[in-house]
Design a protein around this nucleic acid. Structure first.
Lengths: 102, 102
DNA sequence: TCCATATATCGAGATATCTCGATTTTACAT
DNA sequence: ATGTAAAATCGAGATATCTCGATATATGGA
């Protein structure tokens, strides 16, 4: 758990927005039938919603992944990203411990 | 409550360290007798502990103040900074609401 | 008034982040 | 093999942050 890297990853409104969107799969277009069993969302869907270039979104998802907030699962040509709720909770607890008093 | 500005203020390890130090007045040298009734800590003490230039620390304290994490109280030539625990709690709650699920 | 001390503000160079288009890699289909 | 589609990586220009020294402002004392 690298607080420094985690906070930096969240120090950007679009990356935070992406994390929010990923709370609910229905914020994105429906998955293809062959991907119906996957929780995650592919980069193209995230890009379309965020309205930034493909390379920027790929970079953003890499930052969120290295910070531990999302996990990536490759299926064929697609990479599906979803939140890692445990890591997110762990970060929030560590962050609160550093910032809040007692 | 400007989440954007608040997170940016915390996206720096020394500013977070200063906030931590301010949890406990005894992290700094004792106050002058005429300031014994004040909770806050003067800029010079913070600067000495952080080992950065006076202008940098003044700038940092300004950022923390504008983010709402500290309040400044002027007494003569000194400015005493102390944590604003309510604002800090409010920020942490808003931050958690944005980041954590449900 | 003149000086010393504490803090704030200004201006700038160094470094980091943002964001893009172009290219590369990976995987699948023909 | 060749082509296509998705995602990752590269290189770079624009912008922001970091941090400093110099200067300005405010206060109190001689």
């Amino acid at each position: 758990m690298d607080l420094e890297k985690s906070i930096a990853a969240l120090n950007n409104p679009i990356r935070r927005r992406i994390l929010e969107w990923l709370k609910d799969r229905s914020n994105f277009p429906p998955a293809l039938p062959e991907h119906a069993d996957l929780e995650g969302v592919c980069v193209a869907y995230i890009q379309e919603k965020a309205q930034l270039s493909q390379s920027t979104i790929s970079n953003y998802m890499g930052l969120l992944k290295h910070a531990g907030f999302v996990v990536a699962e490759r299926h064929g040509q697609w990479t599906f990203y979803r939140r890692d709720e445990e890591k997110i909770q762990a970060f929030l607890a560590a962050f609160r411990d550093e910032i809040a008093k007692s």
